[in-house]
């Protein structure tokens, strides 16, 4: 299945389905679709609305449905207070991407093309690893980092965050790279390329799409991570944006415009990814769940 092709192709295939969608009735389907989307995205709208609401209007009943007397105070608070958190999140996200791709791409190549003895067991272990609850990993990491003195450190959090993405990444790379024609790799071998050279000059350039998919998810997951952050770097100088929001909620319960403005800013990577790379996202969602 997968057919990221169908999932992601921007326009519908021309062949008629269900015999109904011949253009006659589509206007009310579009209207229903718009209404459903509006309901689904209402919380997102509300987050935006509250982020522009003035403090004195915050507890008004009933609340303003539109930010009539909008204010940018919330965003000013973000600029004043949250920039270090955002920078930390960015560094951790990029670090996680690099670590994840560096570990998973070679593994995917080996599992897909080099038929290692015991490769099946390893793939199985990765599937199982994905199912371990985050809280377990967090507690284990805490115990280990406490001894190694890695609590409150950026590299420590990068390693922990990468565990969210590495198994998924290995599966994606394996699946994608098994689609690369073996003839190509054999041709490279004929020309005298060793496995390393073949991987670097043939396999990697051909896997651009899967590298993008993996990088997007690795970044998004580490950017969104709360559980590792709250156990491993809580209270230190290296807190990411998720902790920034969390402490905001705890500390100043009143300034919800600032909290929601931070939430809006924290959602920007997701928005950018949705606009620029939607097809990779849909590919990633289905790849984990549905077989070919």
């Amino acid at each position: 299945m997968t057919t990221a092709t169908t999932v992601t192709t921007p326009r519908p295939r021309p062949r008629p389905r269900r015999g109904r969608s011949l253009g006659r009735t589509t206007w009310w389907q579009t209207a229903t679709g718009l209404a459903l989307t509006a309901v689904m995205l209402f919380p997102v709208y509300w987050m935006l609305n509250v982020s522009f609401t003035r403090d004195q209007d915050m507890r008004k009943s009933p609340p303003d449905w539109f930010p009539m007397n909008g204010t940018l105070d919330g965003y000013r608070a973000v600029l004043d207070q949250q920039l270090p958190y955002l920078a930390t999140s960015l560094v951790i996200g990029l670090g996680t991407v690099v670590l994840t791709v560096a570990l998973a791409a070679p593994a995917g190549y080996a599992l897909a093309k080099l038929r290692p003895r015991g490769g099946g067991v390893l793939s199985f272990l990765f599937l199982v690893a994905q199912m371990i609850p985050g809280i377990i990993m967090a507690m284990g990491f805490y115990a280990i980092y406490l001894q190694l003195g890695l609590l409150q450190s950026v590299p420590g959090l990068i390693v922990a965050d990468s565990t969210l993405a590495v198994p998924f990444a290995v599966l994606i790379f394996t699946a994608f790279m098994s689609g690369i024609p073996s003839e190509l790799l054999q041709a490279a071998q004929m020309d005298g390329a060793g496995p390393l050279r073949t991987f670097w000059s043939v396999v990697l350039p051909m896997s651009r799409n899967s590298i993008v998919t993996v990088s997007l998810f690795a970044f998004l997951w580490s950017w969104s991570d709360f559980i590792f952050a709250s156990t491993l770097v809580n209270g230190g100088a290296n807190e990411p944006i998720t902790l920034g929001i969390y402490q905001y909620i705890g500390n100043n319960n009143q300034e919800w415009n600032a909290i929601m403005a931070t939430a809006v800013v924290a959602s920007l990577p997701a928005a950018v990814i949705l606009v620029l790379a939607q097809r990779y996202v849909a590919a990633g969602v289905t790849a984990g769940a549905v077989k070919d």
Binding site: T2, T3, A4, T5, V7, T8, L111, A112, R115, G119, G120, S123, L127, L171, I172, T174, A175, F176, S178, G179, I180, P181, M206, N209, S210, V212, T213, R279, Y280, A282, A283, G284, T286, A287, G288, A289, V290, K291, D292
Partner: peptide, 17 residues
């Protein structure tokens, strides 16, 4: 068909075994 058509979507169970 070809790699290009697949756009990175993939089976969860790799076939090598």
């Amino acid at each position: 068909r070809t790699v290009r058509d697949r756009k990175g979507a993939a089976p969860a169970t790799p076939p090598p075994a």
